[in-house]
Amino acid sequence: MSFEVLAPGILTLLQDSGRVGYQHLGITTGGPMDEHAYYWANRLLGNDPSAVQLEITFGQLQLQANASSTIAITGADLCATLNDKVITPWRTYAIASGDVLAFVTPKSGLRAYLAVSGGFQCQPKLGSCSTVKREQLGGLSGLGHAIATGDILPFESNTTRPEQRVPKWAIPNYDVPLELGVIPSYQHASFSRDEQMTFYTSNYEVSQHIDRMGYRLSGPPVTSQLDGIISEGIAFGAIQIPSDGQPIVLMKDRQTIGGYPKIGCLSSLGTSQLSQRQPGQIVTFSPSDVADAEIERRLFNRVILG
């Protein structure tokens, strides 16, 4: 049971929930940029929450099924088709041997997630299949390679399941301006009240410089009273402010330590929403609290894990 890759797309990576426990060795976590979409895809299929999926950035992926199964697609609407018939994300589909699944270009969002019943098979490296190209780790080869033409993507089961859909209340709108809560942490106190006010009242635009390491934003600059700091560990969603004053939100493939002042940190689910924004879209920030982030995550986990 497998898919054959007819066209690999712009950037298609095998991802599970991430590589945990190695940041002290300089190895980042990897994992899905959009945890919300990733976990919902596995939830729809009754998979293990950490089952391996494909993260499809910007589209242009084409696959042919070599067995019957059930798939789930969540996240961005990449104008997907099944045997040339348009299909939409946030639901499951039955597939048969010979079916061709294709993703074109984004209609909304940036990254789609493709899960298959039972999950894709992949040999873990350091406890995870997550692909991190910079570290040459994970993925089908174990060496951090993106999916390529001719690759065979085995999956564990050809079980067909009843049709499932994500409830409407759980489907994000990636086209509206995004407001993100910031937990005032790290070097937040080193930014004056005026600088903090600038940060929290300004519009920031997603720049062209975005990838799995970080999202660089463009807008009114903010400045810390610190010239630099001793390098320290960095969490998913940390917002570092380099010398030009333009915020950089650190993502799944971030470096494990850094020496720029950081004004705070986003929640994991907030950072997931940012990962679906394209260059030119607007992001704003507001002060938040770690308790709010914890409650949001617990409610999400309760829905996903049952």
Rank of each mutant, 00 (worst) to 15 (best):
G237T: 12
G270E: 05
I282S: 05
S218V: 07
Q123F: 02
P172A: 00
A170R: 10
K133I: 05
Q273D: 04
G119L: 09
A293F: 06
R134P: 01
E35R: 15
V283E: 09
L78P: 10
L305R: 15
A148Y: 01
G214D: 01
T201F: 00
L140S: 13
H24P: 12
I210Y: 01
L274E: 11
P162V: 02
Q123G: 00
G280C: 08
G306L: 09
P177F: 00
P177L: 00
T81E: 13
R297F: 12
S17F: 10
I230F: 07
K168M: 05
L82R: 14
S108M: 08
D48S: 11
L250Q: 12
Y113V: 06
Y174M: 09
Q187L: 11
I73R: 02
Y260I: 04
S243I: 12
L61R: 13
A37M: 11
E179Y: 04
A146D: 10
L63T: 15
H209L: 07
G142I: 13
N203L: 01
R91T: 07
R193A: 14
C122W: 01
R298P: 08
S108A: 15
Q123E: 09
P49M: 00
E55D: 12
V206S: 00
V5M: 05
K125W: 00
T12F: 00
T88N: 06
S275I: 14
L78V: 13
G31I: 07
E156W: 07
P247N: 01
Q278F: 01
L61S: 06
Q281R: 06
G306S: 10
I210E: 00
A235D: 11
S275M: 10
T28R: 05
A170S: 07
T92S: 15
I230M: 09
V283A: 01
A148G: 13
G139L: 03
I304Q: 06
S231L: 03
A41E: 06
P32N: 09
Q23G: 03
L11S: 05
L299V: 07
L14R: 11
L114P: 10
D48K: 13
L114R: 10
H145N: 15
S97P: 05
G264Q: 08
D16Y: 08
V166A: 00
P172Q: 07
R91V: 03
Y260E: 09
A170I: 06
I10R: 06
S108K: 08
P154M: 02
S68A: 13
D77K: 10
F3K: 09
N203T: 04
S141K: 15
L101V: 14
N83E: 03
C79N: 15
T198V: 12
V222N: 04
V166F: 05
M213G: 02
S224M: 02
S190N: 15
S185C: 12
F120D: 07
F236I: 10
T131G: 01
L180A: 09
N42C: 04
V166L: 02
G9T: 09
D289N: 14
N301T: 08
Q208N: 06
V100C: 10
G306H: 12
N42K: 10
F191Y: 14
